[in-house]
Amino acid sequence: MAHIVTSVLENRPVAQDYYELRLAWPSWAPAPQPGQFLTVRTVDGPVPLLRRPFAFSGFDRADSSARIIYQRRGHATTLMSAKRPFDPFDILAPLGNGFPDPSSGRRPILIAGGIGMGPMLFLAERLAQTPYPGILIIGARSAQYLPRVVLSHSVQTILCTDDGSAGRKGSAVDIAREEIRQEACAPELYLCGPHGMLAAGHELAEELDAPAWVSMEQTMGCAVGACMGCVVRVHGGEEYARVCTEGPVFDSRTIVWT
């Protein structure tokens, strides 16, 4: 974890209200891993006040850059969407724990919903370079919310929409269920997206007796483990775990799903 004052390289729309921001990554800074996140200070002044967390959607050591995908939906993200190349970008990163490697013999099934696509794209690219590339399933409400990003040819990708306006019709978790049945593989699930999708992914994992890794979200204060703000309920000794420190990636069986 470090305080990094860097600059924007590129900030472009990749779907309706979705942007991909590429930032310069200093050579001294630790490399981000899929599932990890940064927090950005969007302005110098008091509004918006808190740093905003975003998961990494990619990292390129060769050209010293990292990427995030964010959705423009409030004041802070509207300000971010106006950032231009060379604008300063003040971040704390990399934060939290990333996704673990798949267990031996298991087929990684990556399930992304909406803005959860960022870390799944990063993980898919990473796994494509290993002997166990997975299947990436990206779900969105409709065609305009699907990302226009270029993936390596080695990443097997399935797009789906709730309304059937692009790709297959259905939820990303339902499509995952069908794919796993067809392939008759022993899967390991990786999920990032809305809470309901994560809960459905956990249920699917239970049905299949498969491990599932979920990236959890919660309103965040400090993002370094001090304020106890960003907790989620978990099973086990402690009642709550901090998304910023114990997460954001959790074994889905540790989460109390409500």
Binding site: Q218, T219, V231, V232, R233
Partner: peptide
């Protein structure tokens, strides 16, 4: 354990 969420 602290309060229910959200906390912030």
């Amino acid at each position: 354990p602290g309060n229910a969420t959200p906390r912030i």
